[in-house]
Design a protein around this nucleic acid. Sequence first.
DNA 1: TTGTACGCGTTATCAC
DNA 2: GTGATAACGCGTACAA
Lengths: 346, 346
Amino acid sequence: MAVTIKDVAKLANVAPSTVSRVIANNPRISEQTKRRVREAMEELGYHPNYNARSLANRSTQTIGLVMPSSADKALQNPFFPEVLRGISTKAHEKEYTLYLSTGATEEEMLQGVMGMVHGRRVDGIVMLYSRIDDKIMAFLEEQNFPFTVIGKPLVNPDSITHVDNDNFRAAKDVTDHFIGKGHKRIAFVGGNLDLVVTVDRLSGYEKALREADIPYSDDYVVHVEFLKEGGHEAVMELFSLEKPPTALVVADDLMALGIMSKLDEMGLSVPHDVSIISFNNVMLAEYASPPLTSVDINIFQLGYQAVNCLLEKIDDNEMASKRVCIPHQVVDRWSVRTLNESEKVN
Amino acid sequence: MAVTIKDVAKLANVAPSTVSRVIANNPRISEQTKRRVREAMEELGYHPNYNARSLANRSTQTIGLVMPSSADKALQNPFFPEVLRGISTKAHEKEYTLYLSTGATEEEMLQGVMGMVHGRRVDGIVMLYSRIDDKIMAFLEEQNFPFTVIGKPLVNPDSITHVDNDNFRAAKDVTDHFIGKGHKRIAFVGGNLDLVVTVDRLSGYEKALREADIPYSDDYVVHVEFLKEGGHEAVMELFSLEKPPTALVVADDLMALGIMSKLDEMGLSVPHDVSIISFNNVMLAEYASPPLTSVDINIFQLGYQAVNCLLEKIDDNEMASKRVCIPHQVVDRWSVRTLNESEKVN
DNA sequence: TTGTACGCGTTATCAC
DNA sequence: GTGATAACGCGTACAA
């Protein structure tokens, strides 16, 4: 069987506890025995068993990740690899490892999370999305288990540590940007209304219109099931209005891609016939035709900080909840056109 | 502290071992005591500690996932969410959970995997990619640790269990498809030559040309760093040849997107000026303009079967290695045009 | 059918 | 500085 701490102890002529101290680099052990023990470890090819350690320690040094359910189309969004990169970077820095929840349905996901928590498989959890009325979040709160959320929890956001963008502001910036370019017929294409981010951005959009005295119209607001066929219909509706929009605020780069595909089909060209600004600035935005002007929400930082906050909770036993706001910036590409005077109609 | 098996035992007036047996649903326990014990578990809110279980069991019921390093652009490919879906489905079926390796460099990744293996954090590993001369794979083989590979390992593929497509055949099919449509100037745009999949597809492409007596030319073969700027240059080269290609075999949907963006810039239109078939058939292929004809390689199945094979190794202690081949099919969309007679030049 | 006793590999608390 | 010894929570021969 595998080599244990006892084998090392025997070979080095010390007690198992001494070996343990050497591993922990306990300063009260003489350099001499440290060397001897290390040589023994080397010789036997010893590696500590993390399960045993966790058991004795009551700490797993791993954090659980809750993604959208695997059946969820949202998982296809390049948002996740990038947020994962941020998460894994911070985790690696602090020598934490990652545990993945799995499950196709929300119920399965919940079971998985309950397993992680009750089975003491993880020390804390990062939720990679924030959905309205989410059972998993409710469970974690009720259990008082350390967790952080990427995005803004709708229910008591003040008592849940989360890292988010100022999505209200970002959407307002984008809408203002359009207004500054002479656009007045500005439509909003949002994602699933269950996602808090959607409602935040919608509010920002509304606010910008209001400030500019542009009337808000329900006709100009559609919600697209992320890349779904239904979305295409929504776009068709939008452009069969008597006054079709000249500019689109789109909640996600991928959605923008889908929309552009549909526009292309309809013989409409971006940015000539319609301008688009979307969110996330994933790599794809740069490779679209035309390259998309997009709001960079700093996805990497979202993940990085989420882990950072979580570890503060775990390591420092920090009880207070906080909110971290990651800055955004719109990066200009080629999907926006400035309207000339004659085009500035209502 | 948390409620343990002993607390349950006490409340139910049985020995801890009995509780353990109830958990395992041991048939030798009377229904009556089972009920009593279960009630006690319920009342106390008992949940087994997986670390303790793993320790006693010598099995973790979790499988480790090796993805490309988080810094690798390849991680952005929608291939991964989808393969993850397959993996997680099978894992969930068999009540296995998932562990993620992290790391930005290859060295960090290797450290991570060594940690999983030596620390006995996982029972087996699925490698989500297969790169030529991969240190991680070499390590796993040397350790004789159960693992399966998605894609074909270049070194001794016969002794490593892997699940793959017939990429040679797929590329040949695609090239034949073009040939059947009258194309003769067919170029191949491959990905990183380190990836085995690239060389397999390249061979299939060559074979098809040879069979059709179409001369193979190095000028028609370029390799694109996935979605990278360099790729754009490669495309420019291709289309500044005196005889530019009329058809492109592209190793990845995302690459095709990048290429189409560049073609658009150059004033070339798909499929009018150039036809394209790419691989993977990720959701994006459907939403490109025009929608891409693409080879569906059944990504979900790749993941699902990879776990299946791994579990056979682990559970049944199956030592023999095998190769599972997942079927592919090309799904026709709008990126391919049939050449008319006058266009069928060399 | 159920209980006893020990082992899984570590860490932590005492001693010395 | 270092060595016993007792947890950590569970599974499992073996005994009853």
